[in-house]
Design a protein around this nucleic acid. Sequence first.
DNA 1: ACAAGTCTGTTGCATATACAACGAAATAGG
DNA 2: CCTATTTCGTTGTATATGCAACAGACTTGT
Lengths: 219, 219
Amino acid sequence: MIEVTKIIKASPLFEGLTEGEIENVLNCLGAFERWYIKDQFVFRRGDEVSSLGLVLQGGVHIVEEDYWGNRTILSSISPGDLFAESYACLHGQALRVSVLSVGKTRALFLDVGKVLETCSSSCGFHTRLIKNLMMVLARKNLLITEKSGFLSKRSTKEKLLAYLSAEAQRQGSTQFDIAFNRQELADYLAVDRSALSRELAKLQEEGVLEFRKNHFALA
Amino acid sequence: MIEVTKIIKASPLFEGLTEGEIENVLNCLGAFERWYIKDQFVFRRGDEVSSLGLVLQGGVHIVEEDYWGNRTILSSISPGDLFAESYACLHGQALRVSVLSVGKTRALFLDVGKVLETCSSSCGFHTRLIKNLMMVLARKNLLITEKSGFLSKRSTKEKLLAYLSAEAQRQGSTQFDIAFNRQELADYLAVDRSALSRELAKLQEEGVLEFRKNHFALA
DNA sequence: ACAAGTCTGTTGCATATACAACGAAATAGG
DNA sequence: CCTATTTCGTTGTATATGCAACAGACTTGT
């Protein structure tokens, strides 16, 4: 129980709100919890949702199913993370993905319409909640846009350099550590791990950069 | 003049608002216009912005500059489109891109902080404005996420099928038209145009799909 | 300290892809 | 109707990339 409260408090959605205010919001806006067993659908493609989800325990996968039935896991949502928030903001927009529980999962749901429209009681923390939601969407937007920029590069080399360049700029130094291991980086950039390693070796040989494990230095 | 009003009214940000309400909002929230000559910086990388932009006339390019100084045009913003809205929602987040006017350009700026915080006067259309902004962010989010899913496929063939599958699902039929011509589709999927044509021909030969110009049919 | 497991770099190879070049078909403009 | 221009498909070629397999470095657990 206590750890769940921690998770909720730590969520960017409730940043800046006291525990009491959060409880207030949850009651006032009719938030509700649900439990799911392993491999149960939380949402199905085609559903129209009005609530965003917050994973409290367990986890869910966002899965895509194409015309021929091939399933792909788009992302993995852990406790504290939100899901379906974009769809919840778009009234009447049918889900183009499904949400599937990974193990035994507990999730909290919050009606976005109520978040936006209950302005009459307009408590300060309600405004804060709206701002937080907006920031969550904006942040996610920047992250995906950035990634999309990397993926749009034609070659592994270019993808890699774009990523490293952005990381250097983000960390404000030509020397920096990255959060990914090789396989994760390869997955993130949608390339083969060995091809990635090969490019790294080449770039080092060319003197464009130096690296040792997760530490990089751009020349 | 009149056409500018049209553009503002047609913007998703002001959807559902009457012309009078829009004028009200613009005054109340201290919106302001700016003119730019060709190739002038509207925003520079590193800037911290609090206003989103709406192009009224002309156009701007969102450009990225990497560590080595290579410039890439990330997107082209036409009259009626918003720019910098994600950054404006994230207080204190420095721009990682620059915004450059293409020709003589007129833009409208709206302080997002004021949009979110001026809840005291809480007019109905103010709530509507917030909801619209949220929907703009959410919609953009879904679009980029979808594109990112296509780009993450390893081969041209997979990218193409993922795109076509999504298009079929969106249009609710195995037969559909697409909005891109070949070069545009190739750019969107970040592949070579001729390689794209080659894959299309192969897929047609394999009987997976049929196409004629922009009309496609999945088998 | 040892063993088991994981992560990383390397290499060979078959294949996919970018690139360039060209002609046919479609489209636009006069 | 003719011409100029754009769009599209096709092909040859050099190169990049995915894939598989392996060895050494590093980590983890006991």
